[in-house]
Computed example of a mutant assay.
Amino acid sequence: MRPEVLNSGYQPMTKVLFRMIRLFTGRPLPDAAKLVFYRPGFYGDPAKRFTQLAMRGPSPWSVGDRELMAAVVSQANACTFCVGAHTATAAQAYADRDLVRAVLADVDTAPVAPELRATLRLLTKLTRDGTVSADDMRAVLAAGVTRQQIEDALAVATAFNITNRLADAFDFEVLDEDGFAAGARFLLKRGYG
Rank of each mutant, 00 (worst) to 15 (best):
A102S: 15
Y38S: 03
S8P: 10
P28N: 09
K125E: 09
P111Q: 07
K48W: 03
A113G: 05
R97S: 08
D45P: 00
V103D: 13
T80S: 11
A78T: 10
D45T: 13
E115W: 01
P58G: 05
G144T: 14
A118V: 07
Y10H: 10
R138V: 02
F81H: 15
A93S: 15
D31R: 14
Q148I: 10
G44A: 06
G41F: 06
G57H: 06
W61S: 00
M69D: 03
G41N: 12
F81E: 04
W61Q: 00
T14R: 02
V72C: 11
L35T: 13
A93E: 02
R121V: 11
S133F: 12
G84V: 00
A142W: 09
Y38F: 12
T80I: 06
D152A: 11
D108Q: 12
V63A: 14
P111K: 10
P111N: 09
G44S: 08
D31T: 05
L35S: 12
L126P: 01
E67A: 08
L126K: 08
A78N: 11
Y43D: 01
L126T: 04
G9L: 03
P60W: 00
R101Y: 03
D129F: 07
P58H: 12
G41Q: 10
A54E: 01
E151M: 15
Q52A: 15
A54S: 14
F18A: 04
D65Q: 09
P58T: 03
L35K: 07
P111T: 12
L116F: 06
P114L: 04
C82W: 08
D45Q: 13
L68Y: 00
G130P: 14
A91I: 10
P40L: 08
T25Y: 02
A90E: 13
G57Y: 06
S59H: 08
R147W: 04
V73Q: 04
A143I: 10
V16K: 13
P28S: 06
A54P: 05
K125Q: 14
L122H: 07
Q75H: 05
D98H: 08
A85D: 01
T80Q: 15
A102P: 00
T80K: 12
T80Y: 02
P111M: 11
Q148G: 08
R117N: 07
L123C: 08
V112Y: 06
G9D: 01
L17S: 07
A54V: 00
A88L: 08
Y43I: 00
V73G: 06
A139H: 11
Q148Y: 04
V132N: 03
Q148C: 03
Q75I: 07
F81V: 03
G41M: 08
S8Q: 14
V103Q: 09
S62P: 04
A54D: 01
D31M: 11
F37G: 00
F42Q: 11
D108V: 00
